[in-house]
Structure formats: C-alpha cells, structure tokens
Design a protein around this nucleic acid. Sequence first.
DNA 1: TTGTATGCGTTATCAC
DNA 2: GTGATAACGCATACAA
Lengths: 333, 333
Amino acid sequence: MTGLSIATVSHALNGTRAVSEDSKERVVAAAKAVGYRPNLAARMLRTQKSNTIAIIIPSDTNNINANYFYMDVIMGVRRKMNESQHELIVSTYDPYASGGKSSHIAQVLQKQWVDGVILVPSAGSQKRIKLIQDMNLPYVLLDRRGADDSSCVTSDNQKGAADAVRLMASCGKKCIGFIGGVGSTTSRLRFAGYTQAMEELGLPMEESRIFLCPAFSLEVGERGAEQLLAASADAIFVADNVMMMGALRHLKAMNVAVPEEVGIVGFDDFDWMDMLSPPITTIKQQAYQMGYVAAELLLRKLGGMDSNEVIVLDTSLVIRQSHGIPLEGTENR
Amino acid sequence: MTGLSIATVSHALNGTRAVSEDSKERVVAAAKAVGYRPNLAARMLRTQKSNTIAIIIPSDTNNINANYFYMDVIMGVRRKMNESQHELIVSTYDPYASGGKSSHIAQVLQKQWVDGVILVPSAGSQKRIKLIQDMNLPYVLLDRRGADDSSCVTSDNQKGAADAVRLMASCGKKCIGFIGGVGSTTSRLRFAGYTQAMEELGLPMEESRIFLCPAFSLEVGERGAEQLLAASADAIFVADNVMMMGALRHLKAMNVAVPEEVGIVGFDDFDWMDMLSPPITTIKQQAYQMGYVAAELLLRKLGGMDSNEVIVLDTSLVIRQSHGIPLEGTENR
DNA sequence: TTGTATGCGTTATCAC
DNA sequence: GTGATAACGCATACAA
C-alpha cells in the first residue's frame, strides 16, 4: 500500500476522522491508481445496513396494463433514492396467487438486506404486511391503505371520485353510474366518494347502475357499461383507467354519443387521453410525487423516526370533454 | 444452539455435505424456532456474488412518457430473475446530463455487488459501456445496439419501419414522410427501414418530408407534422409513439382527415391506441419478451458463457385504420 | 495524526 | 458423520 495503515486509509476515504493532507492525497491517488472500489458486502456486513430499499408491487402476469401507473411511481422513488445515495430493488408479487405459502415476496426480505420496504398492498396483503412487521423492517404502504395505521401515502381517492360525480352532475347528468373494483381500500374510497357526492346532490342511486367487480380488464369494463346502459345511466364514473377504456369501447360499439347521451369520467390521467374522441376527462393522481413522498417517508423512518404518518395527496380534475356538456350559464374550468 | 457445530449447521441448511437425518431435523427445527434467516451480506462477502443484477435505463426527468415501454421490459426481466432466484435493481441515468463525470451510473456498479447489468444505452453511452467493461462485469445491451459487438437484444427496427412504409404504400400513399430521432441505433435503423422500403418501392424521397430531431416530445411531433404537411406528404411514418401523438394532434388541429388525406403509422403499440380516432396502426415490439430474453442472456453469461450474442426480436404490424384505406381489390390482414 | 486488533455471518478447508 | 478455524473486506474501539 501507501505505507499507511489500513485504518488510516479507511478514514481517509470516508472522511470519518482527521487525516493529514499529505496522507490523504497519497491514499486517494493510490486508490485511483489501483481502481479501488469499496466492497458493499463487507461494509454491509459490518454496518448492518445496505442503503438499499425495495418497492414491491402487485403484478399479475396477464394484466400488465394497469401497471404503467407504477412506472411513474417507481421513477419518483428512484429520484429520491438517488438523492440520498440509496439503491432500489423492484420486486413484484402476484395478488391472485394462492396466498398459502405467503408468496415469494419473502425472498427479497428473507435475505435481510434491504433496509426498508415500500409496499403496494392489495386485498390479501395482510400476511405480507405481517411478515414485514415481524422482521422489524421499516415500511410504508403506497397507493392503498392497510388495515392498521401503518405509514402510507395515497391519493385522496374519495375526494377525487366525488369531484368526478359533481362535475358530471354540473352538466345536467342525473343518472350517474359507477364502475369500479372491490377489495382494495382505493376502490372502496372511490366508491365512497361516489356515494357521498350522489347523496350530497340528492341524486338517486340505483343498484343497477353500480357495477362492482373484483378484477380489472377491458372486458369487465365493457360488461359494466353494458349493464349501466341497460339501467339507462346518462353518465358513468369509472374508477380505473383500464375499465374506462373498456366502457368507452362498449359505448362506441353501441353508437352511444359521448358525452351527449352518456358522460364518462375516468381515474388516472395519461397524455394520450387527450387524443381520444372525445378527449377523456379524468381524475389525475400525482404518481411521481406519490413515489417520491413515500421514499421520503421511508427514509425518515430509516433515520430513526418511528411514528407513523399518513399522507394523502390531492387529486385534480383534468377537464376535457367526455364528462358532459356544460349547461348554459355554467362554466367548468 | 442445537449442540451441533456451526459447520454442521451450515451444511445441514445448504445440503452441501452429508448430515445425519437426526441432526438435520434438529437444525431445521431450531432454525425455524429462532427465525433464522441467512445473511446475504456475509454470504456475498464470502462467495463474491450477490445473485443480483441491475437494469439501467435512461430517464430524463422531464420526458417521463416514453418510459412506459420500459415498464414492460422490466416486468419481463423480473419474471426471468424470479425464476432463477435473482433480485433486480432498477437504476437510471440522465441521457442528457453532461457526461463529464461519467454520470452516477457508476454508483450502483462501484459498489461491486451486482453480478451483471442490463443496460439500455443511449447516444452518449460509450463511456458507460466502457466503464462496465473495465469492471469485468457481464452485461447485455437492450433495445439499442452498442458500437461494438456486445451482447444485445433489440427489435428488428429496420424491418418494422419498412413494414410500416410498405403498408401505407399498399394503400396508395406515395409521398410518405418520416418523423424520427437521430443518435441511437434504434432511430437510425428505423430511418434505414424507411429509406430501404421507399427505394424498393421506387417512391420519391423528398428531404422536406424527412424530419429528424434529437429529442422526443409532443411538441416536436407537432412541428414535424407541420413540416411534412407543408411538403404535401400524404402519409407519415413516425418512429416514436410520443411524437406520433404530437403529429396526430397537429393533423387534427389542422382538420386533416386521417387516414384519407394523410395516413400515419407509429412505433410501439399500446392498447389505448385502439381507442383513438382513427385507431392507430402501429409497429409492435415485444417489450416483455425483450426483457425476458435479455435476462436469460445475462444469466447465461453469469453461468460462464463468454461469447457474445445478438438477438433481434421480430416486430409485428398491428393494423388498425390510421395507415390508410386499402385499395380496391387489395386486402390487408 | 496514526496504527492494531476485533468482529460482522458465511463458506470452505482441513483434520478428526 | 462431525468440529475447529481461517478468510472474505470493511469499520471502529482502543492505544499510541
């Protein structure tokens, strides 16, 4: 080596205690010359932390579509992790798998080398959460809430849904139907927003205009629209973008004029929705932000904060045309 | 402990040498009782491998859109990694960053704890590739080719582009323009496919109907369409889906009938393109498959294979309506 | 300001 | 079939 001791070298490189300028220079030079790279495994073994966290998202092998939302989330998490020199492991689990063997989510965690976890739970994720808790692993839930008061960051699903209904109502729609999922808190809250707004507005809620389904797909969306059409709905709030596409497809196939005959508002906003005909009005979530904030929260936990925090991100209306036609004298903006 | 020695326990757990039934049972029982989990850091330190690989994708902070393609890719990689008990680290780099400090891509790698890398290179990635090579890290390029003959898996961009042009020509389009990028091999090959098909068909290639740009965005797509319209193009092949949206938006704004007046075909297929009006004809890449195959290739390298392999995935035409109207007597299918 | 020595949890080599 | 024990590369408590 440079003649210095191993300890001095370590300190010189990490700036963890005073080292003479001279020595420091020699060390740095030598390190560069020999192409020294710290070995994370050893450091990890010593310090018991990896500076790595995992994000675990649901991904059934068939319905790949719905996941684009998570791409933005992941990028948000990446951004924050990048700022704080952490690495990000992306893992998935199949929400529809027989939860029997508590799924392989375990694998990432079993190896006990992620400092924390961001989990997007789904209906049957109690076991998964329990597992993480049992390991004393800091975690924050994302997009959907857990049963208890774990830290989590979600959108204001209820408010978003209510906004959608109010908007359509403001265009004179009265028979507003609902297509959405069941199971996740997200779905429940969107449904709650729907009922809340309908009640506030004194609008009738027919059971036949409410289509609840466990799984999301284009086909399911189509069937939902079919049912609501039969129940003479004049507007539909679809709580998921894939099903929204399905519903829209059905309306088109039936030659139903949108938004004149039937208005429609979806959840989750993508640029291309502007190009549909008619351009689709949606409730926009702050996906990137959601990831960023969740990462921030987790990092704070890693830093020692042990209180739980629930963060609810605002949603916004992206008003285009599919929701309906503004009544005379009224202006939506 | 169980009275057994540490060595025996290790062997019992790993099945790495003969252990009596009796002892084995005791060990397993004890392990479960105490909630034993192997420490990856230590194992890593000892074995010099982490069973972890990284995928590194370009991501400029503004243009988040183009990345949805990579979501599918990532899922494909995940799938394969899952099968072989590996973990996946997702990292990004800013392709437009001043490459001066060879970017922070280094960080993941410097820590020398990924066994291999899947890299999506961009125009200025020579340094990045060089860096990985210098580390003797197995890697495979994805989506775009490198300067040398590194292992890589891409789509057949040239053939895909040529298909698009031929399809539009088969609908009687003669003044077919091109909107695309420059810099990446992907862009170049798509342009090559365009010129190839144009030449084969004996169609005139006006420079004014060729719009090349370094960065992708809706706005750029719009400007491209504007230029091509001025050059009286009757069809446009857009080599990127974001720019395709931009081009389409401009055509609509100008009240140009698609596909009657101007046909359009894009690259990359998404379900929602079916819902646009008119439904957009596209060249579809096998994104999920691309990730899966790249992972497979990398895994094989980790297994000792040291030859380079170049895999080109086929593209397919997703024929909808935007490309043009089939001539009498001809049928596309 | 610098050096010495110990241990993190494994695997692997050797001896028994 | 089993048990000591060294080594992996680092951080750090303790001395100097």
